[in-house]
């Protein structure tokens, strides 16, 4: 194996270690949530492997439980994953010249923490071997933590009595993700409008209320941003 690949891998793993351990509680909770929704152990582990995206997994569980149509679940997952388009666009130059299979694998492995910690140094390096090590090693570390934590949650979920309303863990997990986002006013407006929109529009057929609510929320966030900007300028 190439020397600079190894160096990159070591540096990447060292950088990622604390954050990857922080993935464990999430992975465990997601494992428990999948089982409490009614997925079998094999289906839950399959979801962890196939989807490998906490937000999209937790976010689609209520829709799977409700028996929503496939296209609606797909659309909701797409919205929940949209932020990755921004990461992918920013990171793409670092994979210039890499083989197709490496790029597909890199896409699958691109989680939030990886982008936050590694993007800057990846884009500044000229050495493709170092870059590949610095990306794929911490990426696989995160992936392993997610699969191991998920397995623990999936196997551990059976310990709790059925009538403990454990499916509420899904909502708690989604809330914990949402709270840091809404410190900003326009983001708070987007969240409130999206949530209330989904509640008020729940009567729409095919559980379309969720998607309609999301659209209302995005529009409200946009308007709120415009409005705060205008006020700032007027002062």
């Amino acid at each position: 194996m190439n020397e600079s690949f190894k160096r990159g891998a070591r540096e990447g793993v060292r950088l990622m270690l604390p954050m990857s351990v922080g993935l464990l509680p999430w992975a465990i909770v997601t494992g428990v949530a999948m089982r409490s929704t009614g997925l079998s152990a094999v289906e839950s582990l399959g979801m962890n492997l196939i989807v490998y995206a906490g937000t999209a997994q937790l976010g689609t569980l209520p829709l799977i439980a409700a028996g929503a149509p496939l296209w609606l679940i797909f659309l909701t997952a797409l919205v929940l994953n949209l932020r990755f388009v921004i990461f992918s666009a920013a990171l793409a130059p670092a994979f210039h010249g890499a083989s197709w299979s490496k790029r597909v694998l890199s896409g699958y492995l691109l989680v939030d923490g990886l982008f936050v910690l590694c993007a800057d140094r990846l884009l500044r390096s000229d050495d493709p071997h170092w870059r590949w090590g610095f990306y794929v090693a911490p990426a696989l570390l995160c992936w392993s933590m997610w699969q191991v934590g998920g397995l623990a949650g999936v196997l551990g979920a059976g310990v709790f009595p059925k009538d403990w309303s454990l499916e509420f863990m899904t909502t708690i997990a989604l809330m914990v993700m949402l709270m840091p986002m809404v410190q900003q006013r326009a983001m708070l407006v987007a969240a409130l409008a999206g949530g209330l929109g989904a509640v008020l529009l729940r009567g729409l057929p095919l559980r379309l209320g969720v998607i309609a609510g999301i659209a209302v929320g995005i529009a409200a966030g946009f308007v709120a941003e415009r409005w705060t900007e205008k006020r700032r300028r007027a002062w």
């Binding site: 937000t55 976010g59 919205v79 986002m181 987007a190 999206g194 999301i214 946009f222």
Partner: peptide, 8 residues
């Protein structure tokens, strides 16, 4: 704004 709106 999409993730915050969707989560909520």
């Amino acid at each position: 704004y999409a993730p915050a709106a969707a989560l909520s």
